[in-house]
Design a protein around this nucleic acid. Structure first.
Lengths: 250, 250
DNA sequence: CGAGCGGCTTGATGCAGGTCAAGGACACCG
DNA sequence: CGGTGTCCTTGACCTGCATCAAGCCGCTCG
């Protein structure tokens, strides 16, 4: 259950919507607030957005949308994780990116591109907020500042894609994997040994990095024999972060 | 009236609005009108945008901006062509895309990403319109509809990138090249032989397709021996478009 | 004019990573 | 319990493309 400081919020919500759904609306508002896109919105505007939203629960493996479908809006992650991918002609999935809270995705479909350019399925039990398209467009017209956030969010995705694009061509896995491992480490720059759990299965991770699971497995094995990391199932410990950094730097 | 820092520039702008340079402004307006982003703008708004713009001429090989530089705005192609690329760690360039009129690019830098995420150089003598960032942001606030166009433009770039991403991993050159050739053909669906000139050197084309010029050369040679196309220098004739389509379909 | 250079082609060779196949660890289920 | 599933690992092999190298053409420029 999501806790919310009520009071002023509740009052506004009551007046905004008819009250029956207000607790759900408040919960949605709270989640939206986490997203950087809505972080700086006034409570009133946030409520207005929330009113045009609905919640969707997904089981593991359930698909949220398919490539080519007409879009109903865009999405803000509330819990779990969602994989965005396309199918190669021979039917295998090419993962484009994986989203988790508090990221948002499919903003593209707000504009001229009306249909989803890729597929989305939940990697685990997840909840997403569906932001209604036409409501949101109306709001943008009244609240131009919002569109700058929108642009910001999209440009981050775009930059990320550009990065992936060049990574996949220009750097080999050991570099990309080393990079990824270092970015997972919570402590960041700290030189001390850091440990964490893989947030996804190795198969999915392989997909994210653009290789097969076999190749990922081999590369992890190599890192292990070189004494850079220790791997036990989903548990990873970084032993020699300078060594990893040397790989990642390339 | 919006203030500009440089005194000389301020003077120019003043005289622009008062008529001396108005022909330049009119020319800019006309070019902007070509771009789909500005196509539906009212004449007054268009003039307002044009006023915040300047023109920049580039020689072949001249760089427009470099990765990491702070951005001054975004660009609309007026003539020529500009290549966007990043440098791999070992110093070779990885082309991300090539723009020609009436496309616009570097819109990303309008939002949170303040510095260019890649490099841009002219592939031939070119002219671009520089759209001043802060002025344009002001305009968005007054004219929210504009931001939807902005979002549209960016989402097209984004979709294009997603396509490239999956192409590079999932399809081999012959498929990508076949695809590209068919998209060049002006007549489109017509089954009759179509001919055209390569808009860029084969080396650059290879870069766009994500391979080396040697590989492109070999692939073209194969298509030639298979009787799909005829190539003479920059002149290409599509002989067997169904055959090409069969390749591209994969 | 010849030298040099950039673009293009073609051949020989190497390698990263994909594919196929087999097997182990673990979970769930009738 | 054994059966069937997913996930992961490891080995043997294959292949698309990069790389290196050599040579041809057409150009610009000293």
């Amino acid at each position: 259950m999501i806790k919310i400081k009520s009071g002023a919020y509740d009052g506004k919500m009551q007046s905004a919507s008819s009250g029956l759904n207000s607790s759900r609306q408040v919960a949605i508002s709270a989640s939206l607030r986490q997203s950087r896109m809505f972080a700086s919105l006034s409570p009133g505007d946030l409520a207005a957005v929330a009113e045009g939203c609905s919640l969707r629960s997904l089981q593991k493996g359930e698909t949220l949308f398919r490539e080519g479908e007409k879009s109903e809006g865009f999405y803000v992650m509330q819990s779990g994780s969602v994989s965005i991918f396309r199918l190669t002609p021979d039917g295998r999935e090419q993962i484009i990116c994986v989203f988790r809270p508090p990221e948002s995705f499919a903003e593209v479909t707000l504009a001229t591109v009306e249909s989803y350019p890729a597929n989305a399925v939940a990697l685990e039990p997840s909840q997403v907020i569906v932001v209604n398209k036409s409501r949101f467009r109306d709001l943008i017209r009244r609240q131009p500042e919002l569109s700058l956030h929108m642009l910001g969010s999209m440009s981050i995705h775009l930059k990320h894609l550009v990065q992936s694009l060049q990574d996949i061509k220009g750097r080999q896995i050991e570099h990309r994997l080393a990079d990824w491992l270092l970015h997972q480490a919570p402590g960041g720059a700290a030189g001390c040994p850091v440990a964490f759990e893989l947030p996804v299965t190795k198969k999915v991770l392989a997909g994210q990095l653009g290789v097969t699971s076999e190749t990922l497995s081999r590369t992890l094995a190599r890192f292990r024999t070189e004494g850079l990391i220790i791997v036990e199932g989903a548990h990873v410990q970084i032993v020699d972060s300078p060594g990893l950094r040397a790989y990642a730097a390339l």
